[in-house]
């Protein structure tokens, strides 16, 4: 069965004081466009960046990224 990797970055940004894509990008060392691409599922980040996102949003990695049945 096909699965897709989904993420909750948009919601978690909102919960983290309505952090903007640019703010999150600046804090983990990527551009605003890359954060937008990750949120839309157009780009799968490296493991290092994924962990940085979770660290900045102060949640475990599995709260940010998870599998979803297609």
């Amino acid at each position: 069965m096909a699965r897709q990797l989904r993420n909750e970055i948009r919601v978690l940004r909102f919960n983290a004081g309505e952090m903007t894509q640019a703010d999150l990008g600046a804090r983990i060392g990527v551009t605003r466009q890359t954060i937008a691409a990750i949120e839309q599922g157009k780009y799968s980040p490296s493991l290092e960046t994924a962990f940085r996102i979770a660290e900045v949003l102060k949640v475990p990695l599995e709260r940010v990224f998870h599998w979803e049945e297609a």
């Binding site: 990797l5 466009q33 839309q40 599922g41 157009k42 780009y43």
Partner: peptide, 10 residues
């Protein structure tokens, strides 16, 4: 790559 996300899930 920039428009459609060739290197990602989509």
């Amino acid at each position: 790559g920039y428009r459609r996300g060739l290197n990602g899930q989509a």
